[in-house]
Write a protein that binds this DNA or RNA. Structure first.
Lengths: 163, 163
DNA sequence: AAAGATTGACTACTCAATCTTT
DNA sequence: AAAGATTGAGTAGTCAATCTTT
């Protein structure tokens, strides 16, 4: 918790950015080679599948995948266009939608997971021991002190995972 | 180096992606609030400033910032448009350019660094002890076994740092 | 006014194709 | 043919403004 020299922090930062982007690129690349859509699609499908009946408030889904609202809306357009989910007006709150996962959505999510799991194992698991992996997960979690529910506007470029 | 269960790797992956993107977003957001351009600009300017006379082969600069070629070209268009660098045809190799850092480029890089350094200290350094920071840097570096010079086409969305 | 969602216009990224030089 | 660089067309992300409901 003590403040450290900026040099140390910069080294950790540089490695975080380098490793983070490189690993993400490799995993996404593996998926793409197999003809799968971006991982952002997986994230949304997975949030829906975790929810009861595969249904979730649009605003709730948005906050879970850490995407900005305008970004999320356009992502949903594509997912709906592909027949993976439907937007159904919410009966309780007229402002909101409820997202419904379709059978096609479930099928695709399952298929993506096979490739996704393998890619993670290859690009993360294969390079670290069990102990190291635990340490890494622990250290990284310390970088996220507050988990702002909707406090700030997430701005991304197709990232924002969360397997 | 031993293979581990995919569950452990998935947890590390999830944290890596979450922390990595969250920290990057926060740092970039701090910079933007102060009116600075994207960090990708900083990366290029910094590579030029490190080079002798502020001059570097375009292809060499590209490989160092880990951007795809077509992505890098358009980034250079913007930097040149902003007067931060110039593209000068290479006398030795007619196919290539030499990038020249301008005085405006040096000035902006220096100004950006002040904000950048502070943001890294706040979003990385403040959350970890010196020992933890070292551990983190070490673990992350293990995720980058081969450092492909130009072996694969980096595909990014404005990321790809390296302070 | 605030929350949820969406749209238009703009910017940035991506892929494939192209051009020049080696 | 290969390396370095660039462009056109299409896709995706971004910002500000808008609309509806609460």
């Amino acid at each position: 918790m003590t403040a450290i020299s900026s040099d140390d922090a910069q080294l950790a930062w540089a490695n975080l950015v380098r490793s983070g982007t490189a690993v993400m690129q490799r995993v996404e690349n593996d998926m793409k080679k197999q003809g799968f859509p971006p991982i952002a699609w997986y994230d949304v499908l997975w949030e829906l599948e975790k929810a009861p009946d595969g249904r979730l408030q649009q605003s709730e889904a948005q906050s879970r995948v850490l995407l900005a609202q305008y970004n999320f809306v356009r992502l949903l357009d594509r997912l709906q266009e592909a027949g993976l989910l439907r937007r159904v007006p919410c009966k309780v709150d007229g402002r909101s939608n409820v997202l419904h996962l379709t059978d096609e959505g479930r099928t695709l999510r399952r298929a993506m997971w096979t490739a996704y799991d393998a890619a993670i194992a290859e690009h993360v698991g294969a390079h670290l021991s069990r102990q190291e992996t635990g340490q890494l997960a622990d250290l990284l979690s310390k970088l996220l002190p507050e988990r702002p529910k909707l406090a700030f506007k997430a701005r991304q470029s197709g990232r924002g995972r969360g397997a």
